[in-house]
Amino acid sequence: MLSLPLRSLLAQKIFHRTALRCVHVTSKHASEDEPKKKFDTFPISRYPLPKIETLPQSIQDRISEADEKTGFVPNVMTSYAHRPKEFEAFFNYYDVLMQKETGNLSKADREMIVVATSSYNSCLYCVVSHSALYRIFSKNPIVADQVATCWEAAAITDRERAILELAMAVCKSEEISQHYFDNLAKHGLDAEDAWDIAAISAFFSMSNRMAHFMNMRPNEEFHLMGRVPKTKSKPAK
């Protein structure tokens, strides 16, 4: 039996565009007295989106946790839920790479890699969603926008540039020479950090291609994250 929060989580609005089905997942945090205009009317994925009660409990719990934390359900979750086993594999590896607490890369460093890689691969979803996280962790929305547009011209540090040089070489499948390791070492980054950089770039290059294939659309909430103060939900009366 689903709890009321999970029932609310899957409040769905169905519409058709170019013969594709879109399920709009409404967060339980949405205010009923403040209707929100939806600007992007494309389906969030070209594949059908499952009902939450048909998914394994672990996936239901993860979706609910994301909604509790951010106030909405990222469309990458609903999209990958079309294939539950791949959902589990994708987000397990995501956590290993992006939630890692060892090594010398900060959360901002990791998101910067994702943004630059995704920009090169022209991934709308990942550029928008991870630029939001990069803005939050770096506390520098201007540089985050620059990296999303053209990292080579961005006002980043020499350390960050060394990180992105390796990340982009991996993204482009270029030759990986000792030069990259030596350059990282100048900024206190070792071979294990280089592995992390490469793994993040490689993983998100795959993610970019799958998002492109699915025609995945970013949640509109991502666009303002890290730009404007987070609005607090109204207390229940």
Rank of each mutant, 00 (worst) to 15 (best):
M1A: 06
L2A: 03
L6I: 10
L6P: 01
L10M: 12
A11F: 13
A11Y: 13
Q12A: 12
K13M: 12
K13W: 10
K13V: 15
I14T: 15
F15W: 14
H16K: 14
R17F: 14
T18P: 07
T18Y: 12
T18D: 15
L20E: 02
C22M: 10
V25R: 15
V25G: 11
V25M: 11
T26A: 10
S27G: 07
K28R: 15
A30Q: 10
E32M: 14
K36C: 10
K38S: 12
F39H: 15
T41I: 14
F42K: 02
F42Q: 09
P43C: 06
S45T: 00
Y47G: 01
P50W: 01
K51H: 15
I52K: 04
P56A: 04
Q57N: 06
S64R: 08
S64N: 12
S64Y: 12
E65A: 15
A66T: 00
M77K: 08
M77A: 03
S79M: 08
Y80T: 05
A81I: 03
H82E: 08
H82Q: 15
H82P: 04
P84I: 05
K85R: 14
E86A: 14
F87T: 03
E88N: 08
E88M: 11
F91T: 00
N92A: 15
Y93F: 11
D95C: 04
M98S: 10
M98F: 15
K100G: 11
K100S: 04
S106G: 08
D109R: 05
R110M: 08
R110A: 11
I113G: 08
S118W: 05
S118C: 04
S118I: 02
S119H: 02
S119P: 04
N121W: 09
S122M: 07
C123Y: 13
C126E: 09
V127T: 00
V127I: 01
V128N: 05
H130I: 04
S131E: 10
A132V: 00
Y134H: 12
R135P: 05
F137T: 08
K139R: 14
K139Q: 14
I142E: 12
I142Q: 13
V143N: 01
V143D: 00
A144I: 03
V147F: 05
V147Q: 00
C150V: 02
A153P: 01
A155I: 06
I156V: 09
I156N: 09
T157K: 09
R159I: 10
L164I: 01
L166K: 04
A169W: 04
V170T: 10
C171Y: 04
K172D: 05
E174Y: 05
Y180N: 01
D182C: 12
N183L: 13
L184E: 00
A185M: 06
K186Y: 07
K186H: 07
K186S: 07
D193L: 07
W195N: 11
I197T: 08
A199G: 09
A199C: 12
I200E: 11
S201N: 05
A202Y: 05
S205W: 04
M206R: 09
M206F: 15
R209P: 06
N219L: 02
M225R: 08
G226A: 00
V228N: 11
V228G: 10
P229S: 09
K230R: 10
T231S: 14
K232H: 11
A236Q: 13
A236K: 13
K237G: 14
K237W: 13
